[in-house]
């Protein structure tokens, strides 16, 4: 469990904010937002949604719901962050369920990160596991090296150098439609090698949290 979240002074500060927020002081709730929004977005929402716009929506909705349910939260031994993380995760799963209606392109890649995460010791940790950027970068580089040159180039240009489709197609000397197909195949190939390197867990796709 994160030492910062478990720090007693941090929890005292949280309680103070909570009491003021329950009295209707939205500024106090804003302090809680400031403390945990970024973390929720990056560690909880993005791995489940893979879509920045959707993650932002879910983040905003998480705090709205949390404010409405502040009375339900009983401060205990753990930080309010984990309570917020549960709400956020359920909200993210709601967005996945609504995909057919909203047409939003969402991508849950938690299972792809799984091999890079330390085994969790508690349910709370399941909601707040940070992936080492360094380890992730190394794993991706190693997988890319297993791909053929053209696939590797397509992925590097599009995702690591963040080039536009048009620019990627031009630099690879193919038409735009051809590049789309090339990239699709490159991603499939990458995933195959990624899973061979470290088999991913068979995560249930829509795990509802309590």
């Amino acid at each position: 469990m994160d030492a910062e979240l478990n720090d007693s002074s941090q929890r005292l500060w949280e309680r103070s904010c909570l009491e003021r927020a329950r009295r209707g002081e939205t500024a106090a709730f804003g302090d809680i937002y400031d403390a945990y929004a970024k973390r929720l977005y990056e560690r909880v929402l993005m791995p489940v949604l893979g879509n920045p716009a959707a993650a932002e929506d879910a983040l905003a909705e998480t705090f709205r719901i949390a404010f409405q349910r502040l009375a339900d939260f009983q401060p205990g031994e753990v930080s309010i962050y984990y309570w917020l993380a549960r709400i956020a995760k359920n909200k993210a799963l709601d967005l996945h369920r609504a995909r057919k209606v909203t047409g939003r392109a969402l991508a849950n890649f938690e299972n792809l990160l799984e091999p890079l995460l330390a085994p969790h010791a508690s349910p709370e940790e399941l909601l707040d596991r940070e992936v080492s950027k360094h380890a992730l970068g190394q794993a991706i580089q190693a997988t890319l090296e297993q791909l053929n040159e053209r696939y590797r180039r397509a992925i590097e240009l599009r995702f690591l150098l963040d080039q536009s489709r048009e620019s990627c197609a031009e630099r690879l000397g193919v038409k735009l439609g051809t590049f789309d197909v090339l990239l699709l195949r490159a991603l499939r190939s990458f995933r195959k090698h990624w899973e061979e390197r470290a088999p991913t867990s068979s995560r249930p796709p829509e795990m509802a949290l309590p």
């Binding site: 893979g50 879509n51 890649f109 792809l112 991706i140 991603l187 499939r188 995933r191 990624w194």
Partner: peptide
């Protein structure tokens, strides 16, 4: 293709 989209999201995340 969900699997490819997930892979793309992972790459962007990295």
């Amino acid at each position: 293709p969900d699997a490819a989209l997930e892979t793309a999201a992972l790459l962007r995340y990295s």
